[in-house]
Write a protein that binds this DNA or RNA. Structure first.
Lengths: 188, 188
DNA sequence: AAGATATGTCAATATGGTTGACGTAAATTC
DNA sequence: GAATTTACGTCAACCATATTGACATATCTT
């Protein structure tokens, strides 16, 4: 485990204010980051909700069609790893997206048991619209940040992610992130 | 890999669609931040799950007892603003936490219709345990960051949050964040 | 041929969210 | 003081999304 005895000067004042509740001076909770993450994510995922409603979809559909679009040829098993849900739960949502033509599937050539998933033009359009909303928020937030700061933000988010058993999608993402910092080209 | 290398084509057509729907020719989606946020939050909120299970609670209970502990005397209405759920939905979870002694309520003195919420020692202990897990992850992630970088990360998360109608809790958080950085009120 | 793997499906159940209607106590307004 | 509004609680129905467990089918591996 990590030594947490030293605290950053930047966050000292807030933690001092909040210290009285925990009573554990060795490991002051990072209330600031914990709560900022909560609110940031709340508003971040809230953006697409209205649009999704119009399509009769929920956040589950968004996640599925997003990753299928971004990683064409994704297998069902990959999707399960990424979303951390059961196949029964994925089944319903995926079936809707297939029936309504947002996603198509093809049998794998090497292994014909696999169902490789692809977003249709309709699916791509939906993903693009939703990503546009979220991108607007991100660009607004990053407006006055320097490239160095933006890089640090990405590095932080990346460092928050479990490395224990990274799934296929995550390996690509983390590979790209590190390629940005150390110059290695790691394209698919 | 199989013959499925339509990724470049998919990205191109996506950006075309994106331009059409948004009217902004130069607005590439921030896929990196979008997906890093997804995975970072997935793992971040995943930490407390095992502990919550042992208590027979879910993430809803965590959110409620967390904010009650952090902002003692919170009103029910405040909690509804923060969590963005309905009172019926909150009711069930809150009742459990009250019945099992994690939270108590007192009538407001100025306005006796209000039920002011407070965490008990039992509730505080639970919050502390859960916050400890998340703090460990945050400290691990921030281990090699400079104070300046940490400040930028907090500023980014803060900038991702809606300012339209900040609830009471959010005002406190944003107030502290801006006080930490420049001591001025942030009305952007 | 036997077994393992990838996926789909049926069924039951749980959690956490919704809308709508209604009730009560207390504060505010006329 | 009466009327209205506010803060909160509750009942009831419903929905979205998740779970576990069992089983089926096709296909790959040994």
């Amino acid at each position: 485990m990590v030594d947490v005895n030293s605290k950053d000067a930047a966050s000292r004042s807030l933690e001092t204010i909040q210290r009285q509740s925990s009573g554990d001076p060795a490991k002051p909770p990072r209330w600031d980051i914990i709560e900022l993450l909560f609110f940031a994510y709340r508003d971040f995922v809230g953006d697409p909700d209205d649009v999704l409603d119009q399509f009769g979809f929920g956040r589950a559909h968004h996640r599925v069609v997003h990753f299928v679009h971004r990683y064409p040829g994704l297998k069902v098993a990959d999707l399960l790893d990424v979303l951390r849900i059961t196949k029964q739960s994925l089944g319903r949502v995926l079936k809707q997206l297939l029936d309504e033509g947002y996603i198509v599937q093809k049998s794998g050539e090497a292994d014909r048991r696999q169902r490789l998933l692809f977003a249709t033009a309709k699916g791509e359009a939906l993903v693009a619209q939703l990503a546009g909303l979220q991108t607007d928020r991100i660009n607004r937030a990053l407006k006055d940040f320097t490239p160095v700061e933006v890089e640090a933000i990405g590095r932080f988010l990346s460092a928050m992610i479990d490395r224990n058993d990274p799934d296929k999608v995550l390996q690509v993402i983390l590979g790209q992130a590190s390629a940005k910092t150390d110059g290695r080209t790691n394209k698919t």
